[in-house]
Amino acid sequence: MSVEKGTLEIRNLSKSYVVDNNQLQILKNINITFPSGAFVSILGSSGCGKTTLLRIMLGLEKQYEGDALIDGEKIKGPGSNRGIVFQDHRLLPWLTVGENVAFGLDKLNRKEKKLLVDDHLKLVGLSGFENAYPSNLSGGMAQRVAIARALANKPEILLLDEPLGALDALTRMYMQKELERLWEFEKITMIMVTHDVEEAIYLSDKIVIMSSRPGVIKKVIDIPSARPRDRASSEFMHIKAEILKEFHLGTEYPFAYAI
């Protein structure tokens, strides 16, 4: 069976911890396919296991039941076909911006490295910063370097773990636009974990809504709207209302006033 490169499948996946002799179910019977080249968001409140799911796809978590497949093959551990952007930029403070971007390129020679680093810093709009240290960057810039580091490895899939969660609201919106631009440019699969409804709608082809304890997939919503999306459009608002209803946060017909 051949699968298009950059496809990630989760089949009958469950995971539980044992805490003080009590079985604590984190993920229960997850089934989902992330198609090649799509932008998919996993949306849920904290504690729903969405980050655990991402760590399974990354290969950092190995104890679970069921299957996690990349391009039809079982995920055995971290690999260069998947990139990751953590919520904290996780740049190494003792390396320059350029050296951080080259962190995963150790096998290449100096010239190839420099070419890729320059390319990707340019891509995230930070040309000329390769000799700066992370401590001299703002939060948004640091996160862009982290994205460059992940993309420099030429992954088939980019995993994003609440990548914009630590940024202020305005920088966040700007970075959402940047992410969309990068996704359209790189044409790779992107899977983002987030708890920001608007962010998910703005960026995704598909939103996977999860609920907590145990973490299950509640609903999958396809968003066919044209890009770039207008946050103020009625279509956008409509999708937002539909998603909020899933979290019992719908405002249209609050029970007390529904006479």
Partner: peptide
């Protein structure tokens, strides 16, 4: 590298 975890944007 004085304690840095994302500054102000």
């Amino acid at each position: 590298r004085v304690a840095f975890d994302g500054g102000i944007a």
